[in-house]
């Protein structure tokens, strides 16, 4: 407060660092690559497209672009569809789908956490719990899916599946209102 020192204080222009949360970012990148790797077991064409999807996801997570992460996930979905149409067996398709959706969920959260809380905030516990929930949902649904596949191995899987889908479509239509 004395007049002897320079009258203007130094200024610090830094805002908080809004880069995506680190741990989740790495997890998302790893999972998007894993989706492509798993798809190799199903179809090479699909795996190639998924690799492009993984690349888009990686770049987008790094730069914190929410839309890019979604684009990467859509690309991977496209890869899974292509692999499915080309006759890939269910196991790698289920695996790749699980990885892709996890990559999107965790990657998108990483960006979101970065934006609301910042890269330097303590968010380890939040990220871990979120990822655990997502992992639980993915593994449960994938297991159910695979169980249905195994159970229906020699019966009329298509008939049963189509009924299941019809029911799901109806329920979604009701819920969306």
């Amino acid at each position: 407060m004395s007049g002897e020192t320079t009258s203007r204080g130094q200024t610090r222009q830094e805002t908080i660092n809004r880069k995506p949360a680190a741990a989740s970012s790495y997890a998302a990148i790893f999972l998007s690559l894993l989706a492509a790797a798993v798809l190799v077991l199903g179809s090479l064409v699909g795996a190639t497209i998924a690799a492009v999807g993984a690349l888009i996801t990686t770049v987008s997570v790094y730069r914190g672009r929410q839309k890019g992460v979604t684009l990467g996930a859509l690309m991977t979905t496209g890869a899974i569809v292509a692999a499915g149409v080309l006759g890939a067996p269910p196991a790698p398709l289920l695996g790749a789908t699980g990885c892709a959706i996890l990559a999107w969920d965790i990657g998108s959260s990483a960006i979101d956490i970065g934006q609301t809380l910042g890269h330097n905030a303590d968010t380890a516990r939040l990220e871990a719990v979120r990822a655990a929930f997502s992992l639980f949902v993915t593994s449960t649904t994938a297991t159910v899916g695979y169980a249905i596949y195994v159970l229906a191995g020699d019966g009329q899987p298509m008939t049963a599946l189509v009924l299941l889908i019809l029911g799901a479509v109806i329920i979604i239509a009701v819920y969306r209102q």
């Binding site: 499915g84 149409v85 890939a88 269910p90 398709l93 993915t138 994938a142 899916g145 599946l161």
Partner: peptide, 17 residues
Amino acid sequence: TTSSGLILAGIIGFGYA
């Protein structure tokens, strides 16, 4: 396209929904 793999993959999607 009668690809049972894709239908099963849809289960994960329904699960998330």
